[in-house]
Nucleic acid binder design. Sequence first.
DNA 1: GTTCGCTCACTTTTT
DNA 2: GTGAGCGAAC
Length: 876
Amino acid sequence: MAHTGKHFANAAAVDGADELPFDLPPRGATATGAASPADDDEPPFDLPAAPRSAQPPRQQQPEPGRTPSQQANAPGDGGKRLSLSARALQGSASPRAEQTPYLQGLNPEQREAVEHLDGPVLVLAGAGTGKTRVLTTRIAHILATGRAYPSQVLAVTFTNKAAREMKERIGSLVGGAVEGMPWLGTFHSIGVKILRRHAELVGLKSSFTILDPDDQLRLMKQVIEAARLDKDRWPARQLAGVIDGWKNRGLTPDKVPAGEAYNFAAGKGVELYAAYQQRLKELNACDFGDLLLENLRLFMEHPDVLADYQRRFRYLLVDEYQDTNVAQYLWLRLLAKGSPNVCCVGDDDQSIYGWRGAEVDNILRFDKDFPGAHVIRLERNYRSTGHILGAASGLIASNRDRLGKTLFTDGEDGNKVAVSAVWDDEEEARSIGDDIERMHKNGQKLNEVAILVRASFQMRAFEDRFISMGLPYRVIGGPRFYERQEIKDAIAYLEVTANPTNDLKFERIVNVPKRGLGDTSVKRVHELARARGIPMYQAAKMIVETEELGGKARKALSDLIRSFDRWRSRLGHIKHTELAELILDESGYTAMWQADKSPQAQTRLENLKELVRFMHEFETLEGFLEHITLVMDTEQAGDGDRVSVMTLHAAKGLEFDNVYLPGWEEGLFPHQRALDETGQSGLEEERRLAYVGITRAKRLAKISFAQNRRTRGLYQSALPSRFVDELPEDHVEIIETKKPFSGAYQNFGGTFGRSSYGQSRFDDVQTQPFEGHYGTPGWQRAQQHTRDQSSASSSSSAKRKWSPSDQRRKRGPLMIEGELIASSSDSSSYRRGERVLHQKFGLGTVTDVDGNKLTIEFDSGERKRVVDTFVDRASG
DNA sequence: GTTCGCTCACTTTTT
DNA sequence: GTGAGCGAAC
């Protein structure tokens, strides 16, 4: 297995690091002469431990828009906390309990994780055990006890979202120390920060640009072509994957193990890697992997720089440690040489990114890497009911490679995890949709309902169904805003305006919209640029002075260059948002989409407007561009009360009252490719994914599997997932299928031959004839539950007038749908003939209005009945 | 240089 | 069933 190889590489690299003279003088020894790395903005970091006034004490004002009661975990009022922490910051050495109100309400393990500040600590934090709270409180504690300045704490996360959340929570605990924590961020953002300071030491200028995956691929293609390789046989995508893999493991081209060079293009892989890196340097650019890899190189080759950072960071904290890859691990280890106070928080059972280079071993091995490590297990779960935890724990127990933890709760057992068989993916969507609708009528908030799928193609069935029944939903983790074509194009225009040396962005838009500059012209510019060692933009400027290009292309290119020069001259003279609008208009980019009659064109124009709106949050164009590659995760569009649909991967870290887990079928989940490609470890990762899924649920978890599924246009029968069988019986309830209509059921009993892994206790469920329907015990329990729920929920009056059980018994869901629509809203404000925009179907004209239900004739020719909340008035 | 039509693949994707 | 990417024809 590839695993051993990885270990080997890993260990070798670590040993290499050990050979370097990284050992530091004892803490407190003065750094002699070492120039401190360009940090005028921060206090010196070689002061004695207790800063006298790390920062000006804050006035007792809660942050705007944030009331103390919203700060869920902290008891007491905000004002008191603020004044106490201000006092603490003024230098009390060992705080007594009443001075550390933020410690109140922690359970003993959490408290230990917060207070055990000296030496390495591994916090194994199971799902829902208060991981973030421990992390943030620990930082607050370090700051409040005066152990370190905010600038001496390194705290890394994986996502911007997690970093933001931590900043907010620490801010509310300590009272606004947030700006004072320059080293709280993602691995990548901190990597960039360090790299910009010392860029010249690794052959970059500090203004280097960061390639997005798109640029990366474009460059990769060029490298492959330059090596005269057949680009069909050796796709750039694959090369990108191989190189990313190496970078994840901290391998520069010279370190790639000889055996692996043959992974790509018959031994050319490493050569291409080196060539690619060379091109990056020429372009003064980094890809995401480099942000860490170049850090490593910097640290290895410049021990003095490393030593500065080692001295600086007195406390190191890492979130989601199970997701770190080798490069991140090495980075951390180098930095941690200066201080034993490393605290890693993670959960080996939630490691689901192995395929992207994450090394569960990092967490499994922690106590060997950091001798004397103190391991704390957080097992008290505050999220889920007993049955949900029981089911999840029972499932994950089948994994062998784990440190072992057992979640428990003092709360109620709640409902058992429901497992049901459905005929096919369509019925799955239908029955889940109906189920959600039923709960919704009983006052269930849709924001507390999630559907977690294994693969994104599963989402379509749900979207289709929800659209036709008018159930509001949002898809989380689809193509992100900044990944959309129009956004990337627009950013490319802005980037080239601000920074004409960005060749990849220049290439992206040189012929968008089409202006007659095809491959040949671009290639000419490219060649000249390479030959002279100048940016393409400059080369383009030269080439239009020559006869080299045809008249048409020459004029187009010269016009474009002149436009860019003009836009650049306005830079700083007009507001950057105005400039952006100007650029988009004058370049013909907006016009291009206006002329486009595809259903998405309107949405794209909206997105462009949204982009300009978003730019207002930045002072300058450069400021905006600086952030864009690394941190452009705008809030998901579509607020309001909606069901969330997302992949299991996207769900990590989230929680919902009700969680649906559809598609538990062999081949889909566990996914066949995971089994084929990584065997046992792949299976275990899939199982962890299942574990993550179940533990997202606070109150109800509902698993289903379809007996037939449409994949690749083919209808194929499927077997229930082995994970279904692995669920402990005590915590599971089998729900009989409850669909009287749809005659297709008659004959499926016989189709369930089971071969791949033996008998399933769910075989019985499938083979039972569907009799009794709504009279079965399962259904009645469900009904009973419904009633319990509705009498328990207090608010939301109008919706509860409708009594679900009686109606449902007599009528099919279609009628119920009618009821929902009539009761949930008044008549629509849309009128016949109005132009509307639907997020999925595009533009259309309203041909009929019935309550809040619209019949729309879409421009695509389709005619659909859609609930009005799903459309917007078309602008323009 | 652009467009059309064919072929291929189709798990997950924090930065 | 669908979209992306590429080659051949216009």
